[in-house]
């Protein structure tokens, strides 16, 4: 579907209370009306700029679904890019990341270079109550093979950048898919080799 090529789907995941909604809200509405910050968010569509090109991005906020696995998990599969948020002031939410990561990997049957996944440490404005060091998070993300960023939804720091980075990954992974014919033939060849190998193994 060529018409869909500019439409991307980002799912925001993370432990409860890390600011998933806040980040999404910040991206969509640069400013809040008065001093009331809304709680809710569901699915939003927005347009973002990626390297001078406009792309349609649909953002799904999963806030509130954390504890209900069945309600949540089946629909992880419909996400394309994943913004995995933890709170820098809550080490529990940090330790939860790996599990979320594995869940996504299992649900999508994909690995990092192909799987658009970004770890985001939120609440960087609360420097005094920080519990996770930047270097630790950075190293951890590298060990998983994904990128790491720190944001502050409150001060609107790095929020747009985080989404843009993820979109960049999505755009690239889409363009990588554009040569399916070649890869197909490659697969077939591989299969043949495997067959021969197995046959030889059987003889030996």
């Amino acid at each position: 579907m060529t018409t869909n090529s500019s439409k991307y789907n980002i799912t925001v995941i993370g432990a409860p209370g890390v600011g998933k909604s806040a980040i999404t809200l910040r991206l969509l509405y640069q400013e809040f009306v008065d001093d009331y910050e809304p709680t809710k968010l569901d699915s939003y569509q927005t347009m973002m700029d990626y390297q001078g090109q406009d792309v349609d991005v649909q953002i799904t906020d999963t806030a509130g679904q954390e504890d209900y696995a069945s309600v949540r998990d089946t629909f992880l599969r419909s996400g394309e890019g994943f913004l995995c948020v933890f709170s820098l002031t809550d080490s529990d939410s940090y330790s939860h990341i790996e599990e979320l990561y594995n869940q996504v990997k299992l649900a999508k049957s994909m690995e990092p270079p192909q799987l658009p996944f970004l770890i985001v440490g939120n609440k960087s404005d609360l420097e005094s109550s920080r519990q996770t060091k930047t270097e630790d998070a950075q190293r951890f993300a590298e060990s998983l093979g994904v990128k790491y960023m720190e944001t502050s939804a409150k001060n609107n720091e790095n929020v747009t950048e985080a989404f843009q980075f993820l979109i960049g990954m999505l755009v690239e992974s889409r363009s990588a898919e554009t040569a399916p014919i070649e890869s197909n033939t490659g697969k077939k060849k591989k299969k043949k080799n495997g067959g021969i190998k197995r046959f030889l193994c059987g003889l030996a």
């Binding site: 709680t39 809710k40 968010l41 569901d42 699915s43 569509q45 349609d56 649909q58 799904t60 906020d61 999963t62 806030a63 509130g64 679904q65 504890d67 209900y68 309600v71 629909f75 419909s78």
Partner: peptide, 23 residues
């Protein structure tokens, strides 16, 4: 449609359900 596709509309109630707790 606010550029949302049908599935995200169909999925809206499911996503909203757990949010009542937050609200």
């Amino acid at each position: 449609s606010r550029k949302l596709d049908l599935w995200s509309f169909l999925d809206t109630p499911r996503r909203r359900l757990p949010k009542y707790v937050l609200l």
